[in-house]
Design a protein around this nucleic acid. Structure first.
Lengths: 345, 345
DNA sequence: GTGAAAGCGCTAACAT
DNA sequence: ATGTTAGCGCTTTCAC
């Protein structure tokens, strides 16, 4: 393993010059620079992180924290975000240290060891975490950036999904296809992301001047699983047998909806159109494949790393909140409304 | 942030003494030791990793590599292994650096940056990776340990699932419940893990003296997905309408099997018993919940980290291969064979 | 049993 | 434009 000394010797300069060249200081003559770079290549020199860190008092690491539940979720959502972060970190020469915390983190839990041992320069938090934990981290005076969660103390740079816009987009898409009696189903409605999707739905319906009532939505499931999607679809159809389209607050629930419809012999999209939200792998292997609103998970990871990089440069540089935009993906589970006219009484 | 100097001053000793105490050298008097430890606690001193690494030429990091496909799999398999590794790493004061490689890693791909930059002391490989990549890593003279993959050059310490035993266990369980006409379905049969499960099935059938033929198994699906499980179940029942139990090579396929049976109005377990392999979250929300063979993912992560720790201590210490044992989990998708007697002609 | 001191690889202030 | 040097926090050898 070549060191700065080896390079200096090879290029016949001092180690300071080598350091300067590595850091692209412009007060080195082009010739010297060239010579040094040649030596660096020849010796395959990579500056030692330990040496650097020792003098810079930085670790070169960024912590990435999420709850165990989120990490082990069956749909790869946070794992994709992580991948984006890890990728972007390369541009800033940072390494990402991933760890999970228990979902019920409390007074008795201890913080991730990379915080206790001060082996990171900043923390990225992904998804909802107990706010008690954030309070604890706060004490360590580390830059914090958050992705896909809006913490109660909203003083942090955050990357969020533009859920409201997504809700509008999905609903408008159905409206454009002539649907009027549009059902909405959700679970965990108090979760800000879910609630915003619901709001988007209502806004689009209102804007289009479409009458809708409580019999148009079922939002009382406690969680957004396939199973609950199945149940919610059942409830919805019992409530309102004339819906021609269903907007599920996420793909998991949409999958449950489709399963229910299939069992009932209701054809998708011929009899009822279905649209989801998220864009997960499973959408593609459905029959028909599920139309949905794509959430750019990987990009969210990139964005939050960018925020972190800003913070790392200058602790108070940013309190930016970024809303990443979503995109409609039409795959075949939505079609033009088949003129099933609801007769007025 | 307290340094060794601060501690030395506080305890009124030299920094060398502090270092000795930290490393539990026994040539320090108990009294001094106590005094130093008190100072360490008081100042909340944690030895700086950078300082340590600089002198030890170690990074204190271990790389964890898996393909992107595996990381993003919908069932949390490798993520659980990672969690086990990360947990165990604490005992050895190592940090785990997670990264993915493209599944089609080839001559044009570059190794993970933590290898190129020598920011790790060893590499753990999880799941099947292109053997070309292993060859590349080989050049860096890093200790390598592998979990859930048997590489062509079998010279590495490895942690594997005892698949054969699991196949036997599952099949014997069905046999004990009086089943004789037992179907087996699989995909990706060339994968060693899958093949071994199949072998276990055949061994148990043979050992019990049960006749079975090619109409007992469908193993030509190319991948072990739910969808393929559905298709394989269909094929199997067309081939052999008298099966009273189906052993699916993994839970994903078993779930597909159950879906098919449900659609056909075949009751599980009343008409046909079903057993899977792996033990994934989704098993529990099935109706009935799926009986299966549990693979101890978390423990596999722990085991591979232990192997790595041995290697890290002494490069040539071990070429151990560890077979982790599996365990039958009976949940309700298997029942006693309902005496459906296959009449001899 | 304890301390002094060298040196790991690097950066940056200062000197030339 | 380039070199000299101190010092980051630690381990370890050697001396006392």
């Amino acid at each position: 393993m070549a060191t700065i000394k080896d390079v200096a010797k090879e290029a016949k300069v001092s180690i300071a010059t080598v350091s300067l060249v590595v850091h692209k200081h412009n007060r080195i003559s082009p010739e010297t620079s060239k010579r040094v770079n040649k030596a660096i290549k020849k010796l395959n020199y990579h500056p030692s992180r330990s040496g650097r860190r020792l003098v810079s008092k930085k670790t070169g690491n960024v912590g990435f924290i999420l709850t165990e539940d989120h990490f082990l979720r069956s749909e790869p959502f946070y794992t994709r975000i992580f991948l984006g972060t890890e990728f972007e970190a390369r541009n800033y020469e940072y390494y990402i240290l991933l760890t999970t915390i228990p979902s019920d983190y409390n007074e008795k839990s201890h913080l991730p060891r990379f915080i206790l041992e001060k082996n990171i320069d900043g923390v990225i938090i992904a998804g909802k975490v107990p706010s008690y934990m954030i309070d604890q981290i706060e004490k360590y005076d580390l830059p914090i950036a958050i992705v896909d969660y809006y913490p109660p103390s909203n003083e942090y740079p955050v990357v969020l999904i533009d859920n409201t816009s997504g809700g509008i987009t999905a609903t408008q898409f159905l409206i454009k296809k002539n649907h009027k009696n549009i059902g909405f189903i959700a679970g965990d409605i108090d979760h800000p992301s879910i609630y915003d999707r619901f709001r988007g739905y209502k806004m689009a319906m209102d804007a289009a001047g479409i009458q809708f009532s409580e019999s148009n939505y079922v939002v009382d499931e406690n969680y957004t699983s396939r199973e609950n999607g199945y149940n919610a679809a059942k409830k919805l159809l019992e409530l309102n047998n004339d819906v021609t389209a269903i907007f599920a607050c996420n793909d998991a629930m949409a999958i449950g909806v489709m399963q229910y419809l299939k069992e009932k012999g209701i054809a998708v999209p011929k009899d009822i159109s279905v649209i989801g939200f998220d864009d997960v792998e499973a959408d593609l292997s459905l029959d028909p494949p599920l139309s949905t609103v794509r959430v750019p998970k990987y990009e969210m990871g990139i964005e939050v790393m960018k925020l972190m990089a800003e913070l790392l440069k200058d602790k108070d540089s940013t309190k930016k909140k970024i809303l990443v935009s979503v995109e409609l993906i039409d795959r075949g589970s939505v079609t033009v409304c088949s003129e099933k006219i609801t007769m007025p009484a």
